[in-house]
């Protein structure tokens, strides 16, 4: 009975957060409006990472490849094949799912430290490939998707992704969808099996669960979410470059999730939002924002390994999903 009370509160909390973000869309000043749209898309990336790291307990150091494959899947098909926005978006998402399946089948043969290094290596190969095929990707310099292509014609009306309000609402729509999906996963049997694997894989196996299949599903779901974020990023912000495939973009989601709280549904968003503003404000005073990222990582792992929402849940709000 008690958990049912908690579940009501949890769903209400998520709806309040989504409604709050919807309301903010109308009142925020221009600059913060743009920042929040970007943060929501990046939070989808973080939520995808959280599925694997938070729930299944698999620390990947290569998630940049999933974000980037979505980014390139959308960007390259739209620029070189002349695909429209919906087809490009779909291409990005499908590419992410396929890559995640391939990487998962190989990388899940390893565990622990080896898993981290294998994912990092695969991601590095992907990054190098984006540089190697610079004839199509233009490497570091990147590609810009023309403004005219970033829109959707719906009969007489045109949905223009470059318009700030449209962009904000599309980002919110994607964010809300993935947030509620994450909540669903966390409360489902699948989510519970993932947590069981994280806590004790041998015991879970002994209870008769196919741990490999569950972990593989987690990798595919996680990679697909991240690729969705990448494809949305390409459509909404129009830039596709190999920076997004570099090691740094594998570290960021880890940082965001750790900060907000691993295995919490709202933690990734909170972490992304907080980090974005910390870097933003810090870079106003000093160019040394990487120092802050580094120190924060060390301090977090030393003193707050559960992150903000993880600590809140442990101390006060036991029902927090």
């Amino acid at each position: 009975m008690k958990s049912d009370m908690g579940s009501g509160k949890a769903i209400a909390l998520h709806l309040v957060v989504i409604a709050g973000l919807f309301g903010l869309g109308f009142i925020l000043p221009e600059y913060h409006h743009g920042v929040l749209a970007r943060v929501m898309v990046l939070a989808v990336f973080a939520m995808g990472y959280n599925i694997l790291f938070g729930y299944a307990g698999l620390l990947s150091l290569g998630h940049a490849m999933f974000f980037a494959v979505g980014l390139y899947g959308a960007g390259l098909t739209m620029i070189h094949l002349g695909w429209g926005a919906p087809a490009g978006f779909a291409a990005g998402v499908v590419a992410g799912a396929v890559l995640a399946l391939g990487v998962g089948v190989l990388a899940l043969r390893t565990t622990g430290v080896a898993f981290m290094i294998v994912t990092m290596m695969f991601s590095q190969v992907f990054y190098l490939l984006t540089l190697y095929f610079s004839a199509w990707t233009r490497g570091d310099e990147g590609l810009v998707i023309p403004q005219a292509r970033r829109g959707l014609d719906l009969g007489a009306m045109r949905l223009d992704f470059t318009d700030p309000m449209t962009r904000y609402m599309l980002a919110l729509g994607l964010f809300a969808t993935v947030l509620l999906l994450t909540l669903g996963v966390a409360r489902s049997g699948f989510g519970r099996v993932l947590v069981a694997i994280r806590e004790n894989e041998e015991r879970t196996k002994m209870l008769g669960y196919d741990t490999f299949a569950n972990k593989l599903s987690a990798v595919v779901l996680s990679g697909t979410f991240c690729a969705t974020a990448g494809a949305a990023y390409a459509l909404l912000f129009g830039y596709v470059g190999s920076t997004f495939a570099s090691v740094q973009y594998s570290i960021f989601p880890l940082l965001w999730v750790l900060l907000g709280g691993a295995a919490t549904t709202l933690g990734p968003f909170l972490g992304t939002l907080f980090m974005y503003y910390v870097v933003d404000i810090a870079s106003g005073y000093t160019s040394a924002y990487m120092l802050i990222v580094g120190l924060l990582l060390i301090l977090l792992i030393l003193y707050f390994p559960k992150g903000v929402l993880g600590t809140v849940r442990e101390r006060w709000l036991r029902w927090l999903p």
Binding site: L59, L61, G112, V113, M116, I251, L254, L258, S287, A288, Y289, M290, L291, V293, G294, L295, L296, L297, I298, L300, I301, L302, P305
Partner: peptide, 30 residues
């Protein structure tokens, strides 16, 4: 200062050394 306090936990030390990477790199740049 860092690794010993983490009791050399493999995953925690990876995160911590990533932090060191950024700190050292930034100090060198500065």
């Amino acid at each position: 200062l860092v690794l010993r306090r983490l009791d050399y936990n493999p995953e925690a030390t990876i995160v911590a050394t990533i932090g060191m990477l950024y700190v050292i790199q930034q100090l060198a740049l500065t």
